[in-house]
Design a protein around this nucleic acid. Sequence first.
DNA 1: GTCGGACTTGGAGTGCACTCGAAGTCAAGC
DNA 2: GCTTGACTTCGAGTGCACTCCAAGTCCGAC
Lengths: 126, 126
Amino acid sequence: MSYSIAEAASRSGLTAHTLRYYERDGLMLAGVDRSASGHRRYTERDLTWIELITRLRATGMPIREVRKYADLVRTGDGNEAERLALLVAHRERVEAQLAEVTAHLRAIDHKIGIYEGKVEQARTSA
Amino acid sequence: MSYSIAEAASRSGLTAHTLRYYERDGLMLAGVDRSASGHRRYTERDLTWIELITRLRATGMPIREVRKYADLVRTGDGNEAERLALLVAHRERVEAQLAEVTAHLRAIDHKIGIYEGKVEQARTSA
DNA sequence: GTCGGACTTGGAGTGCACTCGAAGTCAAGC
DNA sequence: GCTTGACTTCGAGTGCACTCCAAGTCCGAC
């Protein structure tokens, strides 16, 4: 079972453009298979990999670092500790940012509360 | 009490470049005061405002929309309901994104768990 | 056999948010 | 009165991550 780039795009939520761009940029583990006519054929493994790098991207990992991770996985032998370190460092950054965003959000919520009071007051005194 | 652009930068965590850029781009409520020599003088009110827009930016609000909000506040009269709507819409986007990032993070954590197992296994069998 | 549509490539273009550079002004200290 | 350093403006440059375009190929359907 394999998928055309359009199918891979719809399954991954990325665009075909982005899939080609990722491949060109070294984010895939290997060149994607080709049909006799030269069209890309995505395997389940490709899609699983794309799902992972989509998660990394969606949590703010730069393309550069996703590539570094892909390089490690591609090398394939005993660099699991290195991969682990990269992912753990990423997790810590993401957690820190979640905390920061949450704190900002609380402050914005406070502001919203003030406006709600004002708007309500305007409504009842009208 | 007022502050030079360098002081405002260090108090806000932005750079002087960014402060000028924000002003140019219509993010400030009014032109910042100037000294006799034409240097900017930031008031406490300016800094309070900068703190708010920094929170909006840090939670992912585009410059464009911060400007829209600033425009509303600048107009100043009875558009509180509109400001409220803008902030509430933003809050909902941020909350949705927090949930999404958290979900991705959990999946990445799962991956980390797998690597931890592998690395531990490699360590003990060595 | 020709048409439409999905694909290919390489390279250029876009949008966002800064970030920097050049050239000039100004006040204070030596 | 000259240097130093912080400021000014305007406009150009940067980095990131796509996003799009042009020109071409290929395949299945009519």
